[in-house]
Simulated assay, not measured.
Amino acid sequence: MAAGRLTAWLSRSSGLGRGGMIGGRVTLALDPRALRRLGQDRTVVLVTGTNGKTTTALMLTRALEALAEVAANSDGANMPDGVLAALAARPDAPYAVLEVDETYVPWVAQQLEPAMLVLLNLSRDQLDRVGEVRSTERDLRAAVAAMDKTVVVANCDDVLVTSAASAAAKPLWVGTGRRWTGDSTACPRCDGQIQNHDGHWSCGCGLARPEPAWALDGDLVRTPGGRHVDLDLRLPGDANRANAALALAAAQRLGVPPHTAAARLRTITDIGGRYRTIRRSRHSVRLMLAKNPAGWMETLRVLDEDTPVVVAVNAQEADGRDLSWLWDVHFERLRGRQVVVTGERGADLAVRLCYAEVPHWAEPDPVAAIDALPPGGVELVANYTAFRDLVGRLRGG
């Protein structure tokens, strides 16, 4: 642990990074059982899914802070190194809320034996980085089946999540009205066609939407007792309301009353810079992050219709080198707007927009793209590393 903390400090001091990942990596190399040791005598909650991990984990952390101190990897470092670093940073916190990359859930859960697992959604992501989504579902299903003491809070409107969570001894179903169905046309159990009727889905093999104990209805969340909690979030979009519904259900099971949790969720205004508005010279820039087709769909829905849009795409290791996902995003929604294409892979994005019949122009430098627009508001949408780099540059100038 001391070696890990020293390495993290050296990384921060030399400006190489925040230190969480490398510090955790050194600790695990010296003591492979460090994660198990650090998780003992705590109430551990794991949050996973393709989209919304950081947001939901922050919401649940904020709610549980009404009870006691919470260890959390709020910087988004969601692989084992980052999970360990978060626990090490707060060794005495009785609660831990940890977002975990889907592919690492089986190993992390085996080490930490969590009291709760929150399953948000499963959809296609970069193939070279995370693999095929149905394979991810099978791995999660096997992991859930081994968690005989874990409460699994799951989104019953996601077919793949329901398939994985059905293996749980203690499932708690939440209805979110999820709109992304691009990966739910075939049953993950039998490959049969999923039938949808008035918001309920089912397959001939018996897999079907469970009746939710909690349900999202517009800006309200219905609790198991039939009462309604008004979310009134300061974060935009249906996806964030769905995240909040899952966070409220999880928090209530852990002892936080829904109205108390909802009030604490209303204090959240941005997620690591996402949704934040930064003033730059003549422009007011709202920052948005989108990393895969489902995430882009939700982001495109909340853009202001009359505001120019700068779209930045990179393809570094953290983003996934494979850009085929661009063709699954409904960029046609950008028609009629002033659109600027930028980022390391701006040319690939430009080709996609040409086929979507979206007029645009290209500027290699994202900050120069903003500066070239007329004075006023700008919507900036970027994938992971493009977003990270832009936030740093805009804050600095």
Rank of each mutant, 00 (worst) to 15 (best):
G4N: 05
A8Y: 01
G15Y: 00
D31E: 14
D31R: 14
R36A: 11
T43K: 00
V47W: 07
T50V: 03
T50C: 05
N51M: 07
T54A: 03
T55W: 06
L60T: 05
S74C: 05
A77E: 08
M79T: 05
A85K: 00
L87T: 00
Y95R: 02
V97Q: 02
V97S: 01
V100H: 00
D101E: 09
Y104W: 15
Q110C: 10
L120W: 01
N121Q: 08
N121I: 12
L122C: 10
L122Q: 01
S123G: 06
E137P: 08
A142I: 08
M147D: 01
T150Y: 00
A154H: 03
D158A: 08
S163H: 12
A168D: 01
G182H: 10
D183V: 09
S184T: 15
C190E: 01
Q193R: 09
H197Q: 08
W201V: 01
A208W: 04
P212I: 02
A215D: 07
D219N: 12
V221F: 03
G226A: 05
R234V: 15
G237D: 04
N243I: 03
L248T: 13
V256C: 02
P257E: 07
T260F: 04
A263I: 14
A263C: 10
L265R: 02
I268K: 14
I268V: 14
S281R: 11
A290C: 13
K291R: 05
N292L: 03
R301V: 07
V302Q: 06
T307S: 15
P308H: 06
N314W: 06
A315K: 11
E332Y: 09
Q338A: 08
Q338E: 08
G343D: 11
R345W: 12
P359A: 11
A362H: 12
D371S: 15
N383T: 14
R388W: 09
R388V: 04
V391I: 09
G396T: 13
